[in-house]
Amino acid sequence: MQAYANPARFNALALSVLPWCAGITVLLFAVGLYYSLVVAPQDYQQGETVRIMFIHVPAAWMALACYSVMALASAVAIIWRHPLADVAAKTAAPIGACFTFLALFTGSLWGKPMWGTWWVWDARLTSVFVLFLLYLGYIAIWQAIEEPARAARLAAIVALVGFINVPIIKYSVEWWNSLHQPASVLRADGPAIHSSILTPLLIMAGAYTMLFLTLHLIAMRTEIMKRRIHNMEQAEVQG
């Protein structure tokens, strides 16, 4: 049965990679936190609050990255009906939702000293908030439908439709004169920040990415186990 062949292979592959991922994640976090909190200098204007950037920006990146992973996996699930694709999409959603919530929360904490208010209805913030709602909607679709195959197809459609919001977030700063900081790392003419700020940012971004990868692999293995459990329970009851 093709459906069961590669999940088993995936399980074995994931199991061998997981210890490495976990190790690298812990290492990156240790180095990243050290650089962010100790090495990085104070900002002449913001003082210490600039350090919030080192957990706000990676969280925002991961929020977008997770949704892109979900959308890509959903596309693969619909087009090639790969059984692992919707497992990947379903398990990425809760993790992505967490990163989005963290991005909003740390952003608000950073905004208060800088802009004087916890929240402002600015293009970038609003679209990230909508992204958070899209995550909740996607997770709700999976919970609302019992039968996995049908839930997978509907969830895939929801993820793809929601993907339109990602470019809006990315370019919201330019399109509307947004209070939010325009992109200063991934720019055509190269990063526009001093290396003492850039290094901790990139390390923390690496740490967040590795954390996502580790959690995602574990969650996917769990989802595969849950599907086998569901099938075995059904067989047991009818048996």
Partner: peptide
């Protein structure tokens, strides 16, 4: 008795 921990949704009509 063997089905006590299963969710009722899995049961057949007779069960």
């Amino acid at each position: 008795e063997s089905l006590s921990s299963y969710s009722a949704g899995l049961l057949s009509a007779g069960q």
